[in-house]
Design a protein around this nucleic acid. Structure first.
Length: 642
RNA sequence: GCUGUUGUAGCUCAGGGGUAGAGCACUUCCUUGGUAAGGAAGAGGUCGUGAGUUCAAAUCUCAUCAACAGCUCCA
């Protein structure tokens, strides 16, 4: 007999070799029906796998992450079975579960799969799911496995096998499909009730662009149709938040083919948001001791050779323009220009920290496939600054930048983000990262310590650092789930020396400063793209391009409306009158669609009482208030940025 | 950059080898209406661009540009 311990601490005795499914059945039939896999001693197992020793067992249902991932992984096998039956000779690479669903990478030879084919594959999967075939596990020797795939001529699975140890190799079979797989799987295909293949795209084998491109099919499955329907509705909702759609509807920005891909044109409404953000940044930076500078958009090649950017990033800079034998580049970053400002004057330790700030315009020739609305562009306006400081000052300065992040995030109500300590990859020293292993470790430790001292939660990721040093990136997700770096705070141990930047220290010796590169508001492009989605277009009053729309009931109230407009403008409130000869219902509808925070409805009644009927966007009629009271409310709300 | 898909009016989209359609938006007129669409008339497109096939191309073929999805990349 063996002892099984459950998460609530209960212990029961069972015969050796019992399966989790049998244990579940011994507890209740209902439980047995709802479980997908079991966590046995912390490892996820098939329910049909025999347990040979004392163990802790936790049953995994659909609501558990482990349950979902097992369900989706099994769904990937079902997809492969369907594809294999329809496209004989197809070879498979890997088919993992992902955050929402699963994919399977495959080599179809010279065949292609279109969106229309996906529906057919989906149908086939539904058919196969109904057969309710069991997923059966088989331990197999490496030799047998190699023979199996050699016979099949499957170089992909053979490649996978190379890295597997004999004695730990398993095959899983369901219906007509057998796959090399570590598992685990759900008991049988019948549990997969709702299936949606969400896309087909190319994906490089092993994620390396030098390798062959495989076909990747994405899908998502659910244990019932209702959850699938809800998921599809959620996707539709997310699309409505997409900044590309909102940006067009609200007149924020446009991208014109003739101007160029990735070169957004900021329309009047978008420009207002830019100006408000800059006002905020300038006041915060002034308070935090920054000094503002302005630098040109181009520079000679020499500058980027000195900084070291050119060898790393030439491919993603606009090509040089050559004048009288001298090459000039559009700047892709502001740091070298700022370094030259540091170098322009003699510096003493008494001048440090020196903080130079600029909303700098940069141009980056991003790969065409990378462009994405405002989130990834070729012309960007960066909330940039460089802090030149001593090693002793570093921790305080770096932390002050983090505090600035948090101050901004509070204003914007940004809560869903991850702080990422981006480290170098030792394997790519000299290639992607400056070859200074000790300086890397030292500065990484410095940054880590600042974060720990400040008690700010963060994750560490290797291979995400800048070429000149580690950084703290703030990762956010777009409406459709893409990850972006919103803000960044970087250490640079390299450029100070490359530019021969020095200050005179207390001992009258020249010393190289550490440099912090930081962009708490990222770029206008990405930040406003993010804000559009974050607020779903419903900007807080202080940011709203039009803060008040005055809606006269009829032309008879137009003079009163004009007076109100004048007074609002005197209060620096952005307001407009809807002068069209439309009914009030139409005017309200259009103002609501434009997501204008306040509507001031004025008719004869209001005019005689010097009042306004206030309507709040998304809320509705707030009743009549005196004009003065309305102005005060708005001024307060703008000032408090709520 | 790679793989796939798409490109028709300002926007959303239908159509499809015989020379272009809807709704919304726009313009004008009527209407002066009290909290999410009042009515009528009108204007607007060489169907992304270039070439080829054809008596005839917006429609078929090729190239090219751009957008979209994913991959790769991101100072």
């Amino acid at each position: 007999m063996i002892h099984i311990t459950f998460p609530d601490g209960a212990r029961r005795e069972y015969p050796e070799g019992i399966t989790s499914m049998e244990i579940a059945k011994s507890i209740s039939e209902g439980l047995a029906r709802n479980i997908l896999a079991a966590e046995v001693n912390g490892e996820i197992w098939d329910l049909s796998r025999a347990i040979g020793t004392d163990a802790t067992v936790k049953f995994l249902k659909w609501d558990d992450d482990g349950g979902k991932s097992t369900f989706w992984h099994s769904s990937a096998h079902l997809l492969a079975e369907a594809v294999e039956s329809m496209y004989p000779g197809v070879k498979f690479w890997v088919g993992p579960p992902i955050e929402k669903g699963f994919y399977y990478d495959m080599d179809l030879g010279d065949r292609t799969i279109s969106e229309a084919d996906l529906e057919k594959i989906e149908q086939k999967m539904k058919e196969l799911a109904k057969q309710n075939n069991s997923y059966t596990r088989k331990e197999i020797s490496k030799k047998e496995a190699v023979e199996y795939f050699e016979k099949k001529g499957d170089e992909y699975k053979l490649d996978l096998l190379q890295n597997l140890e004999d004695g730990h190799i398993t095959f899983y079979t369901q219906g007509q499909f057998t796959d090399l797989c570590r598992g685990p799987h759900i008991p049988s295909t019948g549990a997969i009730k709702a299936i949606k293949l969400t896309g087909v795209a190319g994906a490089y084998w092993k994620g390396d662009e030098k390798n062959k491109m495989l076909t990747r099919i994405y899908g998502v499955t659910f244990p019932n149709q209702k959850e699938l329907d809800e998921y599809l509705i959620m996707l539709e909702e997310a699309k409505k938040r997409d900044h590309r759609k909102l940006g067009k509807e609200l007149g924020i920005f446009t991208i014109d083919e003739e101007v160029g891909p990735g070169l957004p044109l900021w329309m009047p409404n978008g420009t207002i948001i830019i100006e408000e953000l800059e006002k905020l940044a300038k006041s915060f930076e002034l308070e935090a001791g920054y000094k503002r500078v302005v630098t040109p958009h181009i520079a000679k090649e020499k500058l980027y050779l000195t900084s070291g950017h050119l060898p790393y990033y030439q491919d993603s800079m606009y090509p040089a323009m050559e004048l009288d034998g001298v090459k000039y580049y559009l700047k892709a970053m502001n740091c070298p220009h700022h370094h030259k400002i540091f170098a322009a004057e003699q510096r003493s330790y008494k001048d440090l920290p020196l903080r130079l700030a600029e909303y700098g315009t940069c141009y980056r020739y991003e790969q065409s496939g990378e462009l994405f609305g405002l989130m990834r562009v070729r012309c960007l306006h960066m909330n940039d600054a460089h802090i030149y400081c001593t090693r002793e000052q570093f921790a305080q300065e770096f932390r002050a930048v983090n505090d600035l992040y948090l101050k901004y995030f509070k204003i914007f109500g940004i809560e869903k983000y991850v702080m990422r300590l981006s480290l170098h990859d030792p394997a790519k020293l000299g290639e992607k990262y400056i070859n200074e292993p000790e300086l890397w470790l030292e500065t990484e430790a410095m940054v880590r310590q600042v974060m720990l001292d400040a008690e700010i939660p963060f994750v560490e990721v290797k291979g995400e650092g800048a070429f000149y040093g580690p950084k703290i990136d703030v990762q956010i997700w777009s409406a459709i789930g893409r990850e972006f770096t919103l803000a960044t705070n970087q250490v640079d141990f390299a450029q100070g020396r490359r530019f021969n930047l020095t200050f005179t220290n207390q001992h009258n010796e020249p010393e190289i400063p550490l440099i912090i590169h930081r962009a708490p508001l990222g770029t206008h492009e990405r930040f406003i793209g993010f804000l559009l989605e974050h607020y779903a277009g419903n900007f807080p009053l202080w940011l709203a391009p039009v803060q008040v729309k005055i809606l006269p009931i009829s032309d008879k109230s137009m003079d009163y409306a004009q007076n109100i407009l004048k007074e609002l403008k005197n209060c620096d409130i952005r307001a407009e009158i809807d002068e069209r000869s439309e009914k009030i219902g139409k005017k309200i509808r259009d103002a609501e669609l434009m997501k204008i925070p306040y509507m001031a409805i004025v008719g004869e009644k209001e005019a005689t009482e010097n009042k306004l009927s206030v309507r709040r966007h998304g809320v509705g009629d707030k009743g009549a208030v005196s004009a003065d009271e309305f102005f005060e409310t708005l001024k307060k709300e703008i000032k408090e940025k709520i």
